[in-house]
Nucleic acid binder design. Structure first.
Length: 275
DNA sequence: AACCGCGCCTGTTCGC
DNA sequence: TGCGAACAGGCGCGGT
């Protein structure tokens, strides 16, 4: 559920809270999340100073001054709480020398925490093979055209594939396709080049707007400060099954926003606007 | 190779 | 009202 905009927002919160600070104490309460958390993680973090953060897709990397980085994935329900009392399902707590506190909370335990050498971050098993950042220069209509050539999978599935492009999840895939007027069920390889260019631009614009809004707050996600993101109010199709499509109000042939299942996930779209 | 469906997990929502 | 069923979905894996 936390997708690129939510992860970006969380990372900015962590950066302001931890960068430049020394870690004084770490406690790991549950190591059995998506994958086992390395038991030496508390020892590696303790005493180190946080040098900075970076995001890769839906992953965050916290770089330390001792040569190690901590890889963080929020999974479905992961949250990072800043300066809050200990919460239920708080699997990891980091306390800084100056009294700051960060709690990693993940009820569904789909998240991940791991250690990687800072110089080898991009070779980590979970990051290697990941596609380009959608907000970077490499991602474009031309890039998409190369990727989808000859592929029969629906374009929605392609956008969700982290090997194609990093950081898009179920919400922003539906939103970007609506923005580009492309049907989520269309075979990716059959979409014209100009429409792929429109799609690349729609992906970028959607993500940029969502980041500016602090992400979408849905169930588990809040900004690290505890504030809600507000991009959920800007959703055009996601979660709006049965409502009118704002692109074709009153059009008799518009049946409003439909919800279908693709690859076991819900997709929302307007069959008139999106072809 | 490419594509689809499954299992993991638990809090919330739905239907009888 | 209360209960169990269904749902939410990021990811890797296995089957086709």
């Amino acid at each position: 559920m936390p997708e690129l905009p939510e992860v970006e927002t969380v990372m900015r919160g962590l950066d302001g809270h931890l960068t430049g600070r020394r870690i004084a104490h770490v406690s790991l309460r549950r190591a059995d999340i998506r994958w086992p958390v390395p038991p030496e993680l508390p020892r590696v973090l303790t005493g180190a100073t946080v040098q900075g953060f970076r995001r890769r897709g839906k992953f965050m990397l916290m770089r330390l001054d001792n040569g190690w980085s901590m890889l963080i994935h929020l999974g479905m329900s992961g949250r990072m709480l800043l300066d809050k009392p200990e919460a239920v399902h708080e699997h990891l707590t980091i306390e800084t020398e100056d009294g700051g506190r960060v709690g990693f909370v993940d009820p569904r335990r789909f998240g991940a925490l791991d250690l990687v050498r800072s110089v080898e971050e991009d070779s980590h098993k979970l990051l290697a093979g990941m596609g380009p950042e959608p907000l970077g220069n490499e991602f474009s209509g031309a890039y998409l055209a190369g990727v989808v050539k000859g592929r029969s999978a629906p374009i929605k599935a392609i956008l969700l594939d982290q090997k194609v492009v990093a950081g898009i999840g179920n919400i922003y895939a539906s939103e970007a396709l609506f923005r580009a007027h492309i049907s989520p069920t269309r075979a990716a390889g059959k979409i014209s080049r100009p429409r792929l260019e429109a799609l690349a631009e729609a992906v970028r614009a959607t993500l940029i707007e969502a980041i500016a809004a602090g992400g979408s707050s849905l169930r588990d996600y809040v900004q690290p400060s505890g504030e809600l993101g507000y991009f959920q109010h800007a959703w055009k199709v996601y979660g709006r099954a049965g409502q009118a499509c704002e692109h074709c109000p009153g059009a008799p042939e518009c049946e409003g926003i439909r919800q279908i299942t693709q690859s076991g996930r819900s997709t929302f779209f307007c069959a008139k606007t999106q072809r």
